[in-house]
Simulated scan of single mutants.
Amino acid sequence: MSLTAHIPSHRKPRRNAPKTALRAGVAGGVLSTIAVAGAAGPAQAEPVTQTIEMPTITAGLSTAVAASAQATQQVAQDLQTQAQEDAAAATAAKTAKKAKAEAVRKAEAKKKAEAAAKAKAEAAERASRSTARTTLSATSGSSTGTAASTSSSSSSATGSAAAVIAFAQAQVGDAYVPGGTGPNSWDCSGLVQAAFRSVNIDLPRVSQSQSTAGTQVSLSNLQPGDILYWGGAGSAYHVGIYVGNGQFVGAQNSSTGVVQRPLSYDPPSGAVRVL
């Protein structure tokens, strides 16, 4: 027997039976509801579907691809333009080089032609002079005879004409030098100019002008002191002084120098009279 068998119970008696019954009824109703819901739940459940939208990247990718394509096309155009410019520059350089070579070729051809023409003219002059020398040798005789002829040729001249002739004859034997104006070397027009200057007559410096400095006269009517010219009046290439008796004095060329010769040595084209 427990120690508490005779101790009156202190448990409180149930106060209200109806309240207990109410609680039991509520609990039973809840359980019934849960049971009904549990039985009906699996049969009526629907699957849950969820759609996940992925971010759209098509637009951005298209823009990047388009930009890349445009850049590539621009580079290709730049390369093509550069290639065209390089080709044009190369063509221009080639054309300029060809034009320069052609100009040089023409200049050289012209120079050769001028040299050939000059050589031909000199050869013709030498041939003419050679023929004249042969004639002179046959007609002039010894040097003593030449001196006598010179003396007689000047005896018919008087006044300024005699002075001009004397000056010219005094230079016989001097050297011929292109552009020479004395006192020991002359060219043809330099000698004529100096001879007339000795009598205070100023003539032009060159043959072309001296050939028109006076009155044109016929070769059949020459007088001592007349200026002889070779070539056309105004375009003469050589001049000399007529000293009478069919002879003249002139600075002929570098091989002969200043000489006195008959007109047949080198027949002149015309004459002018200044005195």
Rank of each mutant, 00 (worst) to 15 (best):
A5G: 07
H10M: 13
N16A: 12
N16P: 00
T20W: 08
G25N: 11
G25E: 10
G29S: 14
V30G: 07
L31D: 04
T33M: 13
A35E: 09
P42G: 02
A45G: 01
P47D: 12
V48F: 13
E53C: 01
M54A: 15
M54K: 12
T56M: 03
G60H: 06
T63R: 11
T63H: 14
A64T: 15
A67T: 15
T72W: 10
V75A: 14
V75N: 07
A76K: 09
T81S: 14
Q82H: 12
D86Y: 01
A90I: 04
K94S: 00
T95F: 00
E102Q: 07
K106A: 13
K106M: 08
K111D: 13
E114K: 15
A115K: 15
A116T: 14
K118P: 04
K118Y: 15
K120P: 06
A121P: 09
A121T: 13
A123L: 14
S130T: 10
T131V: 11
T139C: 03
T139D: 04
T144K: 13
A147H: 10
A147I: 15
S152E: 14
S152D: 09
A157P: 03
T158P: 06
T158R: 14
V164Q: 03
V164L: 05
Q169F: 10
A170P: 10
V172L: 05
V172G: 04
A175S: 12
V177F: 08
V177K: 09
G179V: 06
G179D: 07
P183C: 12
N184Y: 15
S185D: 12
G190A: 08
V192N: 00
Q193G: 05
A194N: 08
A194M: 04
A195W: 02
R197P: 00
R197Y: 09
R197W: 04
V199R: 00
N200K: 08
D202H: 08
D202I: 05
L203A: 03
S209Y: 08
S209F: 05
S211A: 08
A213N: 07
T215H: 07
T215Q: 14
S218R: 07
N221C: 01
I227V: 10
G232R: 11
A233Y: 05
A233I: 06
S235Q: 14
A236K: 07
Y237R: 04
H238F: 03
V239D: 01
V243R: 01
G244M: 04
N245V: 06
G246S: 04
G246K: 11
G246M: 06
F248V: 06
F248R: 03
G250N: 01
A251M: 10
Q252P: 02
S254H: 06
V258C: 06
V259N: 05
Q260F: 02
R261Y: 03
L263Y: 05
A271M: 11
V272N: 09
